[in-house]
Amino acid sequence: MTNEMLEFRLHGRGGQGIVVAAVIFAEAMFLEGYYARAFSLYGAERRGAPVTAFIRASKERLMPRSRIYQPDYVVVFDSTLSGSTLIAGLKEEGTLLINSGENWNKNLPREILPEKLFKINTIDALEIAWKHKLTIGSFPMVNTVMLGALARISGLASLENLITSIKKKVTVRIDANISAATEGYESVKEVGQLAT
């Protein structure tokens, strides 16, 4: 537990379940004793369009009601999204979690990287989602895998509380989602720090 306010920004595409992912993680943090909030902003939401969701958490109930401009954590569900948008405002010493196998850095813009270090972690959530047959049509659902990874690298929610939250907020394929989250928790790897 930390006394500071913690801010997360989740980037993905419509259909990847990032809004519900923010709610699940907020609930898991709530179970850890944080006042956690999850929220999203609307554009014209549709499958494939870029979507952003937020989590804000603190031990105090009072928190600002504004967007998140300087996140402590950025979680990237789709590494083909615009790299400059992804890392905009990410705090110094902030943490980046990317859904990617190899070549995790190919889309991050070298030219705008500030003179600061991010802790970078990757998880091949796509492969894990396929493995657990978490698909809607042919669309892989990576959100619970990403949450398992986020729980591990942040240390802000135990796997146990994450699973409790998944059971509460997920309505289909609960067991597969729990297995996927567990595998995400176990498979995430730190690939190092990125500097200019």
Partner: peptide, 12 residues
């Protein structure tokens, strides 16, 4: 109340 900042914010 405010759209999104309250309507779409999940909280305790």
């Amino acid at each position: 109340y405010d759209g999104f900042y309250i309507s779409h914010t999940y909280e305790a």
